[in-house]
Amino acid sequence: MIPPGETIGILGGGQLGRMLAMAAAQLGYRCHIFAPEQDAIAAEVSAAYTCAPWDDVEAMARFAADCAVITYEFENVPVTPLLALGEVALHPHPRALETAQDRLNEKQFIVGLGGTPAPFAPVDTPADLENAIGTIGTPGILKTRREGYDGKGQWRIMSAADVDALDLPPQPLIYEGFVNFQAEFSVILCRAMGGDVRFYDSARNVHEGGILARSTVPAGDPIAAQVSTARELAAAVAEALDYVGVLTLEFFATEAGPVFNEMAPRVHNSGHWTIEGAITSQFENHVRAICGLPLGDPGLAAATVEMRNLIGEKADEWAKILADPANHLHLYGKGAASPGRKMGHVTRLTLA
């Protein structure tokens, strides 16, 4: 067990790191942020900040020397520089990063565990894309295999004719067939060092423009009938990776059962509702897990909970939100609002 008063290192300086640092502080831990950007908002609520490129091995080693344990707040942290962390424990294990960072590897991993993803095919050349469309059909989505999030690095292909207008980037891609789904949901679990697993209630997720707009718990039908099967896959993923911390898998609810979409080896936007809506938030449980503490109760703290992302909204909208005393407002400390930028979120609880 890592006792309170020690320092937790967090790789990444965004809003997830910010909320992790705030949860860690409540448990008596200091946090040290490592991130390449000058304006890392997680650093504003942390005890220390190292601003350096990911490949700065010396800076990474100095950062590690100050930490009792290290975690990360997003899955695009390069794996190779992490060798400079030395003997300091890194949770979750880098194999989770390696799996999630490549969409092709991720889907093959899921298939190997008995999961069902959307039909997919690797695309490295225009001929590969033509073959993929011929096999899988249209409509579909062409994605970069690495990086890309919130709708970035993705191209919808509604018919084979759409390919003519594409200027393919010089990087590995993957083509996925569209899934005829009834709803979207996520499975969020936390796994302790000894293998104890706790599941949060699954939220019904609504995306707008490729960005999560709203998460609602309970999720209702048809999601409720598919959560058990989805949890079995999520537990198998955690076991296979010897995972420690919060893990998220996103699914489509379909007439044939849950279809895997993607995994995130970290705390997740669709779990922000847990800060007020669960007895123990995903952020606190992640800190508990990586520090070797007993996990907290993930049960609901209200009858219904809704979390809404504030995307590109400005300060005059925030004042209106606060006018309703039932709202819980979280602002991330970012600069000027712009279209598609997550400025914060608001959570509303219904007690009965």
Score class of each variant (00 low, 15 high):
94 P>E: 03
178 F>L: 07
183 A>M: 06
159 S>C: 15
132 A>K: 11
140 G>M: 08
1 M>E: 09
206 V>S: 10
74 F>V: 01
121 A>S: 15
38 Q>V: 14
215 S>Y: 00
184 E>F: 01
26 Q>G: 01
27 L>S: 14
166 L>E: 02
191 R>P: 15
337 A>F: 13
292 G>E: 11
56 D>C: 14
276 E>Q: 12
102 D>N: 15
322 L>R: 07
346 V>G: 03
338 S>E: 14
75 E>F: 05
238 A>R: 03
89 A>G: 11
264 A>E: 03
22 M>Y: 00
34 F>N: 10
32 H>N: 06
13 G>L: 06
109 F>P: 02
106 E>A: 12
73 E>K: 09
303 A>Y: 03
160 A>I: 14
94 P>L: 03
249 L>C: 08
149 Y>W: 11
261 N>A: 06
298 P>A: 08
250 E>C: 06
292 G>I: 12
39 D>F: 01
47 A>G: 04
311 I>P: 10
255 E>N: 08
37 E>R: 11
125 T>W: 08
94 P>T: 04
307 M>R: 06
253 A>G: 02
277 G>I: 10
249 L>Q: 04
281 S>F: 11
47 A>N: 07
135 T>K: 12
42 A>R: 07
284 E>S: 08
117 P>S: 13
300 L>Y: 09
297 D>P: 11
351 L>C: 09
258 P>T: 02
232 E>K: 12
343 M>I: 07
24 A>C: 06
169 P>K: 02
148 G>W: 06
270 S>Y: 05
77 V>D: 10
170 P>W: 03
348 R>T: 15
153 G>P: 13
348 R>N: 05
247 L>Y: 09
294 P>Y: 03
315 A>I: 11
252 F>G: 08
217 V>M: 01
221 D>F: 00
244 V>D: 02
72 Y>C: 02
195 G>M: 14
250 E>L: 00
30 R>P: 01
322 L>E: 14
25 A>G: 10
102 D>H: 13
58 E>A: 15
179 V>C: 07
138 T>C: 15
345 H>R: 11
206 V>R: 13
163 V>N: 06
219 A>N: 03
188 I>N: 03
208 E>S: 11
287 V>T: 03
237 V>A: 04
312 G>F: 04
293 L>C: 12
160 A>Q: 15
349 L>H: 05
184 E>W: 05
182 Q>Y: 02
169 P>N: 03
280 T>S: 15
100 A>P: 01
290 I>Q: 04
6 E>N: 10
46 S>H: 06
204 R>Y: 07
182 Q>L: 13
116 T>I: 06
71 T>M: 04
166 L>R: 04
303 A>M: 02
339 P>T: 15
178 F>C: 07
55 D>H: 14
265 P>Y: 01
58 E>H: 12
302 A>V: 09
35 A>Q: 06
102 D>R: 10
339 P>R: 14
231 R>G: 05
322 L>K: 03
351 L>Y: 14
352 A>T: 15
2 I>Q: 09
137 G>N: 09
196 D>C: 11
273 W>N: 07
316 D>Y: 13
297 D>G: 12
291 C>L: 05
309 N>W: 09
287 V>N: 08
41 I>D: 01
209 G>A: 10
92 P>S: 12
